[in-house]
């Protein structure tokens, strides 16, 4: 079961990296396709930054705030997958990366539960 999950996880990362490579023109082997994969990723990230900047210039609606954050998270994921080649090397690399995200979620999730549910002081309707 664990092995299956691990396989599926690293497999999907590999596919994503390869997909970026294939989308780009150039040779499919040797340096060529890896370089074009990197360049394509870079281009996508620049576009995302462009969107973020453009939206911020335009005085956007408050509802778009999470979208801006999500764009950043996507960029961070792209950097980890393509630039840092998380799919390569021993499986514990992925284990460590996933663990760090899980713990980040614990910290932010349980931590922000308090301010979001705190009743600063409430008067009972007497």
């Amino acid at each position: 079961m664990m092995r299956l999950l691990r396989g599926a996880f690293s497999g999907s990362l590999g596919t994503l990296a390869a997909l970026f490579a294939r989308l780009s023109p150039g040779k499919k082997e040797g340096i060529g396709w890896r370089v074009s994969g990197l360049l394509l990723t870079w281009a996508v990230m620049l576009i995302l930054v462009g969107i973020q900047y453009g939206v911020s210039r335009l005085h956007f609606a408050p509802g778009l705030r999470p979208v801006l954050l999500v764009l950043s998270v996507i960029m961070a994921a792209l950097a980890a997958i393509v630039f840092m080649e998380i799919g390569k090397g021993p499986g514990i690399n992925r284990l460590f990366a996933v663990a760090s995200l899980l713990w980040l979620l614990i910290l932010l999730g349980l931590g922000s539960m308090d301010p979001f549910t705190r009743v600063m002081y409430y008067v009972h309707p007497s």
Partner: peptide, 14 residues
Amino acid sequence: LILYPLIYLIGRAT
């Protein structure tokens, strides 16, 4: 990449 929206972007909504 994460600090960027926290500092520059989120606060600019109207």
